[in-house]
């Protein structure tokens, strides 16, 4: 039973990685950039929820809503101010370096506003969870809700992309910006929508992450951010189901190797598996050819 328990915990952590990875993969697929500040949006979302609940005493649902809107605005503004002016620049390195700069900027602002000390995050989920097999298997409410939200996000996003005009425009821009423009699609607006969705998902991921690991510092976004990036590459960057599978796989591997092999080595194992996957299939599990044509 304990194996099943660890597996479920792995899926829960994996769902958080998956939600973050979805943001990474969408922005990469559509804007053709690695947004290394994506992890720090998680941190900002967590601080917003923390402030709204612990300091302003708001209801968790309202706090989450404010965090999603706040992160959405933050994502759109950073794209507009920091990334868009560099679009079409001769080197994609310029955007990458800018993204790293934005990442540090957000961390330093959080440091300035909230200080370096660890803040205790009150979980937004109060449900105790369920007990199965005469108490043999206990699943926490946070775990169940995290997995459920992960699935909801995946199916919601798939429906959005395949059933709405904006979603189809995103696929068109991902494949060929010029041809999309000729169809009447506003590429800048489509990229802004992508950032809006990715960033508000990051806020959701932040809340779920902090409900499982209830502490906040200005740096909490970096590690899940990097792992979600790994998950996105592992699943095939640019692919939405790939990000989901990559995230879940990574979460399960991390928890299982932490439990059965070594808690110190678990991160190294995660990266070792990534390297093996990329050696065998350079485009990741579900990645197709790399769409580089602009």
């Amino acid at each position: 039973m304990s194996f099943l328990n660890y597996l479920i915990n792995g899926l829960s952590l994996g769902s958080v990685y998956a939600i973050i990875a979805l943001g990474y993969t969408m922005v990469y697929g559509i804007a053709k950039m690695l947004n290394f500040a994506h992890g720090d949006i998680i941190m900002v979302g967590s601080y917003i929820v923390y402030s709204a609940m612990s300091m302003a005493g708001m209801h968790p649902a309202i706090a989450i809503l404010i965090a999603m809107v706040g992160c959405m605005v933050l994502g759109v503004v950073t794209e507009r101010v920091a990334y868009r002016p560099l679009r079409g620049a001769s080197s994609s390195l310029a955007v990458l370096i800018t993204a790293i700069g934005v990442s540090y900027l957000l961390q330093n602002i959080a440091l300035l506003v909230f200080g370096a000390d660890t803040k205790a995050f009150t979980s937004v989920i109060n449900w105790k969870g369920i007990t199965l097999f005469d108490g043999e298997l206990q699943i926490r409410g946070t775990t169940i809700i995290t997995i459920a939200v992960g699935l909801l996000v995946l199916f919601g996003l798939q429906a959005f992309i395949h059933r709405t005009k904006s979603g189809q425009a995103m696929l068109a821009v991902a494949q060929d910006r010029g041809a999309a423009t000729l169809c009447g699609i506003d590429v800048n607006k489509t990229i802004a929508i992508t950032f809006a969705i990715g960033s508000s998902l990051a806020a959701v991921a932040g809340v779920l992450f902090c409900s499982t690991y209830p502490t906040i510092t200005p740096y909490i976004g970096s590690m899940p951010g990097i792992k979600a990036f790994v998950a996105a590459v592992f699943g095939g960057i640019g692919s939405i189901p790939g990000a989901m599978i990559g995230g879940l796989t990574l979460g399960v591997i991390e928890i299982l190797s932490r439990t059965y092999i070594s808690s110190q080595l678990s991160e190294a194992i995660v990266f070792a598996i990534l390297i093996v996957v990329l050696l065998v299939k350079p485009t990741g599990l579900l990645g197709k050819r790399v769409m580089e044509k602009v």
């Binding site: 189809q168 425009a169 696929l171 494949q175 060929d176 169809c183 009447g184």
Partner: peptide, 15 residues
């Protein structure tokens, strides 16, 4: 748009 169907391509033309 080579990853999309013929119909999806045509609909994008009417965007």
């Amino acid at each position: 748009f080579s990853d999309m169907t013929v119909l999806q391509n045509l609909k994008l033309g009417a965007y």
